[in-house]
Write a protein that binds this DNA or RNA. Structure first.
Ligand code: MN
Ligand code: MN
Ligand code: MN
Ligand code: MN
Lengths: 218, 218
DNA sequence: AAAAAAGATTAGACTAGTCTAAAAAACGGG
DNA sequence: CCCGTTTTTTAGACTAGTCTAATCTTTTTT
């Protein structure tokens, strides 16, 4: 059995590998609010246990074993988030920290029953896909809103890097998963973007925000 | 914030104080599957933190602070057990270990929302009372079935010391919380007892079993 | 290509939790 | 009331996780 800290490290590596093809000590430390030296130690231990390959100074990759484990953790995290929002009535900006704890409860049966209870959801409250019990993820082709052109009409599929502040900003602007937007204008100066929801008037989004919105063609 | 181990120790002390007016090192160790020396250390720490009074060699008592904390932990444990049985469909013999982990998830909001979601239950799946958010417990006067006389008609209110084996035995005999029994005969030789449920034929219960059944007059 | 900066690892220390073995205290039956 | 048994505490050791400071390694800049 892995400890909470070990699990969090594997999950951090997995998340970083989603973006890049190698994960680095500094970024893992930042994600876990810890220090690079602590991560170094942990990487050695997890490499010994066969969850990842650590090429010192050149980053980390997950083994098949580590990858499967990461998917189970992501599954647990996202199922709990879904439960918290859909059943208990939490806001989507309030669930991350709690799910960060609940994902470490060890019980295969628990997570399967939870999955069943929730009706086998495919996406969590932030639009992120929930791996099934075999680790399979529903494929989607999304792009960042910041990569869209004037005239594009897109649907918000997911919010990446879900910090509370960003989620509350989206709430305030009435943006949620599924909202359809038309890109009216992109300002070269600051990368900000004017968008118009299907119903309602247009408004502006900073590049900071549009960068974190994953969209699909509507 | 307390660690999982600290919380488990406080809960163990609380449980033992329900039976006796002082809790002892050895019994705490046994309950937590740990050693007396480890408990000694922990008691010192918890005494320093003001959760309990430790009179070396003469046992432990909880302070008001420790008592309040224990009640919150018991509340969390029993609410999670209720969730697991009533919502996720676990058997009452399968939930203890899982709840033992979930009770340590730290979030006031979570437990209040869970309580609300479950409809503010007063008793857990084993018939044990669930403290409300202020630590208040619904009072009941129960006695052990083993203390009953021939002719008594009683209702099963709770199963104490809920080990998996006992719960499965009760399942097998069709006994559950709320079952009404008539005591037909008590055998002096081994303390076994013949009981007859309202509907169905009589059968025998060992003293070991009747000792763990809390009943109230029906 | 050398110097500077950034990033990573190692060394050494500290806390928390646990254990075994040994010493100390309390208890209980003659 | 004494002696052996039980219980508890203490002493010392070990693992896990974390940190700071020092020492590499790699990358970037001049
Ligand atoms: Mn976590
Ligand atoms: Mn999420
Ligand atoms: Mn516990
Ligand atoms: Mn219970």
């Amino acid at each position: 059995m892995l400890t909470r800290s070990e699990e969090d490290h594997i999950k951090a590596v997995y998340a970083l590998l989603q973006e890049d093809d190698s994960a680095f000590t500094k970024d893992i430390a930042e994600r876990l609010h810890t220090k690079a030296s602590s991560v170094s130690d942990m990487l050695k231990k997890l490499a010994d246990k066969g969850h990842l390959k650590h090429e010192p100074y050149y980053g980390v990759k997950l083994t098949a074993k580590g990858h499967a484990l990461a998917l189970q953790l992501v599954r647990k995290h996202r199922l709990w988030e879904t439960f918290l929002v859909e059943r208990l009535g939490f806001g989507w900006d309030e669930v991350h920290e709690v799910a960060e704890q609940m994902e470490h409860v060890a019980s295969e049966k628990l997570i399967d029953k939870l999955d069943n209870y929730l009706g086998h959801p495919s996406f969590d409250p932030h639009g992120d896909p929930i791996p099934d019990r075999h680790g399979r993820i529903r494929a989607r082709r999304t792009k960042r809103l910041s990569a869209c052109q004037q005239g594009d009409t897109v649907r918000i599929a997911a919010v990446s890097g879900t910090t509370d502040g960003l989620l509350r900003l989206l709430d305030a602007k009435g943006l949620r998963i599924g909202t359809v937007l038309n890109v009216q204008e992109v300002h070269a100066f600051d990368g900000s973007m004017d968008v118009k929801p299907k119903s309602g008037s247009a408004f502006s989004l900073s590049k900071d925000v549009s960068h974190h919105l994953q969209v699909e063609n509507a």
